[in-house]
Simulated assay, not measured.
Amino acid sequence: MSPQSASGTTSPAEVLRYTAFSSDPGGGNPAGVVLDAAGLHDDEMLAIAAELGYSESAFLTAPPGGLGGGSGRAFTVRYFSPKAEVPFCGHATVAAAVALAERTGPGDLVFATRAGTVPVTVTETDGTLRATLTSVKPYVAGVAEQDVREALTALGWPATDLDPALPPRIAFAGARHLVLAAASRARLADLSYDFARLEALMHRLDLTTLQLVWRASATVFHVRDPFPVGGVVEDPATGAAAAAFGAYARELGAVPGESVLTLHQGEDLGRPGLLTVELREGDPHIRVSGAGARIPQPAD
C-alpha cells in the first residue's frame, strides 16, 4: 500500500494487517500495523487508517536512544482510527507487539503512547504468540444521570434493561469509556443505535467507546463496544476498554482485588475474540492479554 497524503506525495510505508485477541485471522479485531512510520506525516497516517477501515491502526517509530537504552525493543506508537488520532488502543498494541515478535522474537517491549508508557510482553506457546500489555494508571469517575439517559436513548435501551449491580461509570486506562451493564445477554446481543446521537454525546464526554457488558459468571463477561467517534459502528475486541473495565470492576468491588477476568467480545459480529484481564493486589495497573495473528493478503 502506498497511500497519498493531502499534499499528493506518496508514502512507501509497508502496511501490515494483524488480528488481536484471537489466533484465528478471522476472529478478534483487525488492525493495521506500520512498523516504520518515521517518514509519515499525520495526514498520511490518517489516510492509511481510513483506507484500511479498521477501528484503529498503529504507527511505530524507534526513538533515538530508545526508552530501552537503544535495545531495539522500545518504540513510540501513535494510533489512528479512520476519522482521527486516538491516545491509546489496546488491540492495535497487541497486533503491533505480535508483528514485532514475529520479526525479533518474543520478549519485553516498551511503547511510548500519547496516554503514557505501556510495557508489553510477548510469549509463544505451541506456535501461538500472545501479548500482555500493562496499562497506564487507571481511574473511575461518576457520570451525570442526564448523560446516562442520553446514552440509553441513543442506544434504544430502557433503563430497566440495565443491571443495577453494575452501575454506570466512566473508566479510563489510557482512554475514556462509559461502562453500561446490560441485565441480560439478549439485551447485549440486540444492538442497533442512533450513530449521530451517540457520537455527539461521546465527543462531549471525551469518550473513545462505550463498554457495554453482561456478566455471565463471577469472572466471565460478554462485552460490546460502539465506536462512532472513530467512524466505526462497533469495535470487535477492545483492549483499552478491557483495561478500563478491569479498573471499574475492582473499584466497585464487583471482583476481588486479585482477579483474572475473561471477556468475550466479537461473537455478535462473527469475529469472536478472547481478552484476559488481570488485576493484582496493591498494583493499580491493569494487564490485558490476548493472542494475535497475521491476516493473510492475496499476495502472501
Rank of each mutant, 00 (worst) to 15 (best):
V110E: 07
A144I: 05
P228K: 09
L40F: 05
A237S: 11
A249C: 02
P296W: 11
R280L: 10
L275C: 05
Y139E: 13
D42I: 12
G90S: 04
A247L: 12
F172N: 14
R197N: 09
A175D: 09
S259H: 10
T61C: 11
R73F: 01
D161L: 09
R176T: 11
T128C: 11
P119F: 07
G270T: 10
A144T: 04
T219G: 00
G32M: 07
P284Q: 04
R224L: 15
G246S: 08
H264N: 14
E258L: 02
E102W: 05
D225W: 03
E258T: 03
T208W: 07
T219A: 14
H285C: 03
T117P: 06
S217R: 06
D235L: 03
S259W: 09
V34A: 11
L198P: 09
E251F: 15
P63C: 00
G257D: 13
V288P: 01
A144G: 07
G174P: 02
D283Y: 03
T121Y: 07
P138R: 11
P64W: 07
R197E: 09
S289C: 04
R130I: 06
E267W: 05
T128L: 12
D147Y: 05
D161H: 11
V118D: 09
L188I: 10
A95E: 06
A189H: 06
L263C: 13
L155K: 04
D300P: 09
R176E: 13
P158L: 03
V120G: 10
T76P: 00
V15S: 12
P256F: 10
A84L: 13
G239E: 00
E145Q: 12
A171H: 05
T104H: 15
G156W: 08
A299Y: 14
P63Q: 10
D190V: 00
G174A: 11
F221I: 04
G142T: 14
L180R: 02
L133H: 06
V118H: 04
A159Q: 13
D190C: 00
L198F: 08
P12S: 02
A182Y: 14
V255W: 01
A196K: 09
Q4S: 11
P12A: 14
A141E: 13
R280A: 15
T276W: 10
H285T: 06
S217D: 13
Q265F: 03
V179K: 09
D43Q: 14
R187D: 01
D126T: 01
L279R: 07
A242F: 07
V94C: 02
A186N: 01
E124L: 07
V220P: 00
A115D: 02
A237E: 03
F227C: 08
E124P: 03
A237N: 05
A96K: 13
L67E: 04
D206G: 05
V98N: 06
A31G: 12
S2N: 12
V233D: 15
H91C: 00
V86N: 00
G90F: 08
R176Y: 08
V223D: 13
E278F: 02
G127Y: 07
P87D: 10
A151Q: 05
D235Q: 06
A196P: 07
G68T: 10
G230M: 01
S11Y: 08
R271L: 14
